Simulated assay, not measured.
Amino acid sequence: MERAEYEHYVQAFNDRDYDKVLDFYAPDARIGFFGIDLSDRDAFKRFYSFLHSYVKESVVIERFASSDELVALEGIVRVEGLRDLTADVLKAQGLEQFMPIAKGEVQNMRQYIHYHLADGKFTSVGCTMA
């Protein structure tokens, strides 16, 4: 995957165009990070619809490498609280591993994200934070 194509993916994510984002994934893709399993379109949409009702999230790519089988990047995920996302709200959603964020608060997280590819589609994704 070329960087320009990946940037279209990131733009769709930043724009909250979940259908367009999911079009980059193979039908049986495994999407998992921080203990979350989003292995089907409905789970992905439920999770991000919930999260993005509380925060504005965007990805800035700093380093990018790719081949026919892998996309690897380092970047900053910026999260800004749109309304209070409390520990109680997170717990009710089974998301205790996430940090609460108050309205107006900004969190910048350095993340390392790897996508496995087959036939130009993501088959799995995982990430870690520094």
Rank of each mutant, 00 (worst) to 15 (best):
D15E: 10
L73F: 01
E7M: 15
H52Q: 14
F98W: 11
G94C: 08
Y112S: 14
A92L: 11
R30M: 12
V55D: 01
E69A: 10
A118I: 14
L85E: 04
V55E: 03
L51Y: 12
N108T: 08
M129T: 12
H52R: 08
L70N: 07
T128G: 15
A29C: 12
I61L: 14
L22Y: 08
F122T: 02
F13Y: 14
M129W: 10
S124R: 11
V125G: 06
I113A: 06
F122Y: 05
A26I: 10
D17A: 07
V60E: 14
Y9T: 08
R63C: 14
F24A: 00
I113T: 07
N14V: 10
D84I: 02
D15W: 02
G32S: 11
K45N: 07
M109L: 11
S66C: 12
V59Q: 11
Y9W: 14
D19S: 07
V106R: 05
G104T: 10
A118N: 12
I101H: 04
Q11P: 03
Y115N: 14
F44D: 11
G104N: 14
H114K: 12
G126W: 09
E69D: 13
D40Y: 04
F47A: 04
R3E: 07
D40F: 02
G32W: 01
L70F: 00
G120F: 13
R83M: 15
A92R: 00
G35V: 06
M129G: 13
Y18W: 15
E62T: 12
F33T: 00
L95F: 09
C127M: 13
D28L: 12
P100F: 07
A26R: 00
I76G: 11
G75E: 03
A26K: 02
R78P: 04
G94F: 11
Y54C: 13
D23F: 05
Y48S: 00
T123N: 09
F13T: 11
F122N: 02
R3W: 02
G104S: 02
K91A: 15
D68G: 03
G126H: 12
L90I: 13
R46T: 05
A72Y: 10
E7F: 00
I76M: 09
Y54V: 10
R78T: 09
V60S: 08
I61A: 01
E96K: 04
Q93P: 05
V59L: 15
F122M: 06
R83E: 07
